Computed example of a mutant assay.
Amino acid sequence: MKKRLSILVLFLGIYSFYAQENVTPSNVGNNFSLEGALATLKDVSTIEEFEKLINQEKSDVNNLDLNNDGEIDYIQVEELVENNIHILVLSTFLDENEKQDIATIAIEKTGEEEAYLQIEGDSDLFPENTLIEPFDSKEVIKSNSKGPSLFDIEWKSIVVNVWTWPVIRFIYAPNYVVWISPYRWRYYPLWWKPWAPIRYSVFYSRNARHRVYFRTTTIRRSTIARKIYLPRRRTSTIIVRNNRNTTIVKKNKRGTTVIRKKSRR
């Protein structure tokens, strides 16, 4: 299984480099890797560590510049908790007063040692109901109609129980303190050094490794998490639709909505 996945990673990297060179994202959210965020979460032990890693250039998770200032936006992580549900809200400040949610990670504990999660891209940046989740495969033996001694082997995708992830056990531990990022507009950690956004085709190629273990799905695992989050969702009056035809919607001092469109690059 691991060997097959390694070959797939190599293939994705080569294909991405040649086939995606001139591709531009259809949605601005594509400059943030939802799969990369989950891959990072899988390898950390705390939410604080998770926030730090997704804001590092080498992680190949973030390529967003939503306020068009020529620098990557800092991604803030805040946690909502209700009973057995944890929701990680990934967002960014676009100026002193404007804040835009980028994605949410809904985590629900469903048993003593059982938990499932999904990440959903915000509908301002991604298509509606963009859901990504970890998956694995298992062999399924099916009988073959050609004879009693013959059988077929198929690979079936299964949803992953994420209880084994260190960070999941950490957030469900007794006396856990909910993480609320202390950072905001122009108040960032000393270790953070913003960089200039790179071409989308390059970004897409670099995060190919993240897409191997995660898949899109149309099934929402936790409808309760969605209900908890929606009343607290943050959106900005500055909306960047895509890199080719950027639409900026902003209210002026008189309360009038001003729309500006950039020409194609």
Rank of each mutant, 00 (worst) to 15 (best):
M1F: 10
K2C: 11
K2Y: 12
R4Y: 12
R4P: 05
L5K: 15
L5V: 14
L5A: 15
L8M: 15
V9K: 15
L10Q: 13
L12T: 09
G13T: 04
Y15A: 11
S16L: 00
Y18N: 14
A19I: 06
V23W: 07
P25D: 10
S26P: 12
N27D: 05
V28A: 02
N30Y: 01
N30L: 03
S33M: 09
A39Y: 11
L41W: 02
S45L: 03
E49M: 10
F50D: 00
E51V: 07
S59G: 09
D60Y: 05
N63S: 03
L64Y: 00
L64R: 00
L66N: 01
N68K: 06
D69R: 05
G70Q: 13
I72S: 01
D73P: 02
Q76G: 02
V77T: 01
V77N: 00
E78V: 14
L80H: 02
E82C: 05
N83K: 12
N84M: 06
N84Q: 13
I87E: 08
L88M: 05
L90H: 07
S91L: 00
L94M: 04
L94T: 03
K99L: 08
I102Q: 03
I102R: 05
A106M: 15
T110M: 08
E113R: 10
E113T: 05
A115N: 12
Y116F: 15
Y116T: 14
L117N: 14
E120T: 03
G121H: 01
D122H: 12
S123K: 13
S123Y: 08
D124Y: 04
N129W: 09
N129D: 10
K142Y: 07
K142N: 11
S143W: 12
K146L: 15
G147E: 13
G147A: 14
P148S: 11
F151N: 07
E154I: 01
W155I: 09
W155H: 13
I158A: 11
I158C: 11
V160H: 01
V162L: 01
W163H: 09
F170E: 12
Y172T: 00
N175L: 00
V177P: 02
R184F: 00
R184M: 03
R184P: 01
P194N: 06
P194L: 03
A196Q: 15
S201N: 14
Y204G: 03
Y204N: 09
A208R: 08
R209L: 11
Y213Q: 09
Y213D: 09
R220N: 15
R221E: 10
S222Q: 08
S222L: 05
T223E: 13
I228K: 11
Y229A: 13
R233Q: 14
S236W: 04
I238A: 02
V240G: 05
V240T: 06
N243P: 02
R244E: 07
N245R: 05
T247A: 07
I248R: 04
K250I: 08
K251G: 12
N252C: 06
K253G: 07
R254D: 05
G255C: 10
T257C: 10
I259A: 09
K261N: 10
S263Q: 07
R265C: 13
